[in-house]
Design a protein around this nucleic acid. Structure first.
Lengths: 336, 336
DNA sequence: GTGAAAGCGCTAACAG
DNA sequence: CTGTTAGCGCTTTCAC
């Protein structure tokens, strides 16, 4: 593997000149630059981040902490992050906390602390106080994507607003018996966002004078399969709501399935709305509140990169946008 | 940030002694080791991978190349990899090729080449010849997970076998009109595995003397939504198969949905089988050929780590195991 | 059992 | 516009 020194020797130049030429630092003759570049290509030169990092203190890498990759939303966010990082020449170091539990002294900290990354992006992860303290020690740009995360600035939709919009859509259509498929994601443990959503649901429903039926508040664990089970159970009972608000599209898919399986029709018998804007929502004709997961990841990445380059670090970010996409899964309640 | 030198100064020892004590190199007095460890903790010492890497040539990191994270199977594999890496003290550098196309000179190579990783694991990705050449230059352990990948050793199920087993299950039940939901994943472009599966399907069906109806060979793009669409279309036509073999569970979910939506029943009217062992398969009562995605990722990680530590590098790996899990989505065809 | 010294590949003043 | 000289923080002979 060629080094900067070999190129220098080959060309009778000094290492510094070669280094500058390679990095495009101004103040080097055009022809010298060309010469160096040519030699570098010819010798298959590849820079060593380790060496560069040692002298500059920069690793050209950012850490991504994620509780699980199997939830569609998270993987979208991660895609958005990695793409943006790549575009700016940064590498992504992935810390998948999958199945670990808060406080179990998850291993990322030690590793993160190895001074491998210049910044950290945390996706929908809740930390124990000591973990947070350890992260704080890093003293590098750090932002969260997803629901509010204690101790971190976050980029994400306003959970109350998005749920309020979804619920209001059902109320506007005239539904007065509305169920919720919520609960929280056992892996991500982002209980804050989840309970924000549940409260917003109740608040919105109650504002119209409608009643929130406790047995219609289902816990779908943010997974399609679990949502299917609980919804199946509900629609096998004698009294069920004409509308179902789901805190995620994946759960909505499970709900749709369960409703069909129960021999009922969407939206004739039951209306269903989701939240997220999942790639399959259109195919399932699912009304949803769409947010841009990739965009949020991309924004987080741009932000930490900017801060790395000296941009100011705001204390908070504007809530991410979302919009209601009305499709065929919601309609006015049929007069029964 | 404390360095090895500061600890040495603090204790009146030399840097080499501290280094050895910290790494547990034999030949250091017990008490010295204890002293050093204590001081390191007290000073919040964190080793610098860059510095260590510079002198040893090792980064304690492995690269993961993946075409997309939004397909469930891939994210499971990645989880398996990262968990294993973490357990062995390695970091994961993620290269998400999402949406890029073969030959578009995807950016991973340059980055990977920055000597940042000690090994590479490629998940279901097909490379252009020049990309492969560039990867070859790296000269580090490299294995693929998923379908066979030209130019790389791979860990994965035998596509023909798993599809053969799924198809045979339908034939064994007595089905003679069988459709396939296959196609290939536009993002991963692992056409090899996909076409292996299609061929195995045809071969198996034809062995019983049954006919493969061209219009029953559907292309679901390995996505639930797309599968739902094509299956819907098929079951709206006048002639449809009593059994549907899906090349992935995600597509099977779409198929199940479409069948219900068409007013037909599973398994009374149509039997459906998937491949993968998706986390939601049980909830949807889906018969499937289950493989251990996480396990395959974990195995790949263990393997490259072993090779990094001097273990021999086999030319090929045994095919990964899978097993048929019969659930309620398949049954004997009803006599019509 | 411990220390001194050299060096990994690069960047960054400081000169010229 | 280019070269010299120090390091960055760690590992690794080679001595003692």
């Amino acid at each position: 593997m060629a080094t900067i020194g070999q190129i220098a020797a080959e060309l009778g130049l000094s290492k510094s000149t070669v280094s500058r030429a390679l990095r495009g630092v101004p103040g080097i003759a055009q022809e010298t630059v060309a010469l160096v570049r040519e030699a570098a290509d010819r010798l298959d030169y590849v820079p060593s981040v380790a060496a560069a990092g040692l002298s500059t203190g920069r690793n050209q890498a950012v850490g991504i902490v994620v509780p699980s990759l199997t939830r569609w939303f998270y993987s979208e966010v991660v895609s958005g992050i990695t793409r943006t990082l790549a575009a700016h020449g940064y590498d992504a170091v992935l810390f998948d906390l999958d199945r670990s539990h808060v406080g179990e002294n998850r291993p990322f900290a030690r590793s993160l602390l190895r001074r491998r990354v210049d910044a950290v992006i945390v996706v929908a992860t809740v930390f124990a106080p000591d973990e947070l303290a350890e992260l704080g020690l890093l003293d590098i740009p750090m932002v969260a994507v997803g629901p509010p995360t204690p101790g971190l600035r976050n980029i994400g939709v306003n959970d109350a607003d998005i749920m309020g919009t979804a619920t209001a859509h059902m109320l506007d259509l005239g539904h007065r018996t509305i169920g919720l498929v919520g609960g929280y994601d056992a892996e991500s443990l982002t209980i804050f966002g989840a309970s924000e959503r549940e409260h917003a649901f109740m608040r919105t429903v109650m504002q119209t004078g409608a009643v929130v039926e406790p047995t219609w508040m289902l816990s779908g664990g943010y997974r399609s399969g679990m949502a299917k089970m609980v919804v199946s159970h509900l629609y096998r009972s004698s009294s069920w709501p004409t509308a179902l608000v789901c805190a995620s599209d994946e759960m909505a898919f499970g709900a749709l399935f369960a409703i069909h399986e129960a021999g009922l029709r969407v939206p004739d018998d039951v209306s269903v709305i989701g939240i997220d804007g999942h790639e399959n929502a259109a195919a399932y004709d699912l009304t949803t509140c769409e947010q841009d997961a990739q965009g949020q990841g991309a924004l987080a990445a741009s932000q930490v990169i900017a801060e790395l380059e000296g941009a100011p670090a705001p204390d908070a970010f504007d809530p991410a946008p979302f919009r209601l996409i009305v499709r065929g899964s919601t309609a006015e309640p049929r007069v029964r």
